[in-house]
Design a protein around this nucleic acid. Structure first.
Lengths: 253, 253
DNA sequence: AAACCTAATTCCAATAATTGGAACAACCGG
DNA sequence: CCGGTTGTTCCAATTATTGGAATTAGGTTT
């Protein structure tokens, strides 16, 4: 079939991905070699090559590597193509400021959903999401907000496959989920407590386009204990924001 | 001497960079091959490899390639891991050297702001700040530089609470302050004479992140009497430094 | 200060993997 | 229905990658 690929490039890509996965900001040659099962020499050469293109940077003093400016350019170039992000950015900032919680923006990629932006409030204990990581459409506020506003056919098709739980609180029974989706449509927003991420809670609502389909979803989220008390106020602010954005995409109420 | 590198990896990196340069558009195999002087076969294999790691995506219909989710994750990982203090340290040193005054770095913590670093010039009479002490957002150069570049909602909310004076020169009238914030945004930097600290003067400008929100503020400050004459020159050097740093945080002018 | 450890870098011959031209297939517009 | 384009696959030639070992650099302990 089609595995017409270049192993060297894949290994170089693996090195890059390692930087994104690793919790630490810098990595050493040996560290990378061990975790990827490559020889130190190979890793070193790959790093030198990536460095020549600015994808990674070398701290001459510590002899450790980190992601470089070019890596950032790639990420921002990707995000540039998504103009909903530009449109929503000020609303995210406003929401986060008004609620003093984290505001996020997600888009759909097939049967998944990824965060593509977030604005965090300037306080100590906050919730922070991982941008770019795919999550299923049935667990968590943002996911359910997407699912609820998809065409019926797509909902049926999604619910016909088994639903894996991400936490003990994830709803995996299709009929219970269906009932909840109806509620979400009626209220206009979804709510979740620990469904996707333990200890996290959120309210989420879609930005609807001129077909009344969700172009993106905005959520306001925070640590569950604190957030539950704020949820109603957050939902109100959230719906104001998504209404404005939906209007800009040509949606009529 | 020899740059111990892997040509294949460098070419793969060139392909990726092409996507960042091309910005919003998608790219085809031939297009890439021509512009990079590579064979179509080589480009195709590289793309297949990058695709296997999610760095690029293929639109099956148009058979054209674009950057993928992993590219975004790399960019955001870069942004996440930036240690603003380390990044700014050389610029602080440079600024202090060029101006022969003190250069400081501040971050925000909610409704306050704290100095987290400073570089003092080697002369007798200088200004020195206290690291880690919280100051309000309306008094002094660094504070106003933060406030001016916050989302409107946050400015409104901040100005709706009473503003206490720290010195006789502190501006406490919300409307006068609002006018000044507009000036700061226009000029790109804030100036203060004795607003926070009697006898002290400063110019300050924000380091803006990819949301155009202030990640930190740099100031150049000194004893008021002497500093006032140097302020313009200091402001010019300051803006050069903050522009460079903002660029590293993904801010585009 | 010296010795010792660990990590990073360079060297080199073996060889496994990349390469590019050309053939093939898929697509588009006329 | 048919040329013109673009994307994909094949295959033998050969080039560039590879990994082990040697070397250098840095940092820490004795």
């Amino acid at each position: 079939m089609s595995s017409q690929t270049v192993a060297t490039v894949e290994r170089a890509a693996d090195v890059l991905v390692r930087f994104a996965e690793a919790g630490t900001s810098t990595l050493g040659v040996t560290e990378l070699a061990d975790s990827l099962g490559m020889s130190k020499a190979a890793v070193h050469r790959v790093l030198a090559s990536l460095r020549s293109r600015g994808l990674v940077e070398l701290d001459e003093d510590s002899r450790r590597y980190s992601l470089g400016l070019t890596a950032m350019r790639l990420g921002l170039a990707y995000l540039d193509r998504i103009d909903i992000r530009r449109l929503a950015a000020p609303e995210l900032a406003g929401l986060s400021a008004r609620t003093t919680e984290t505001a996020t923006l997600s888009i759909r990629t097939g049967l998944n959903r990824v965060y593509i932006d977030q604005v965090k409030p300037p306080r100590e204990v906050i919730m922070a999401v991982s941008l770019g990581v795919p999550y299923p459409l049935h667990a968590g506020g943002s996911s359910k907000a997407f699912l609820a506003f998809l065409p019926e056919v797509e909902i049926d098709s999604y619910l016909s496959a088994p639903l894996d739980p991400l936490t003990p609180a994830t709803v995996t029974d299709p009929e219970r989920l269906r009932t909840e989706l109806a509620l979400i449509r009626r209220r206009g927003y979804a709510m979740s407590i620990s469904e996707r991420q333990r200890g996290a809670a959120s309210v989420a609502a879609p930005i609807l386009d001129h077909h009344s389909l969700p172009a993106a979803v905005i959520s306001v989220c925070g640590p569950a204990e604190r957030f539950i008390g704020e949820a109603d106020a957050c939902a109100a602010a959230l719906l104001e924001a998504t209404d404005r954005l939906s209007a800009r995409l040509g949606h009529r109420a």
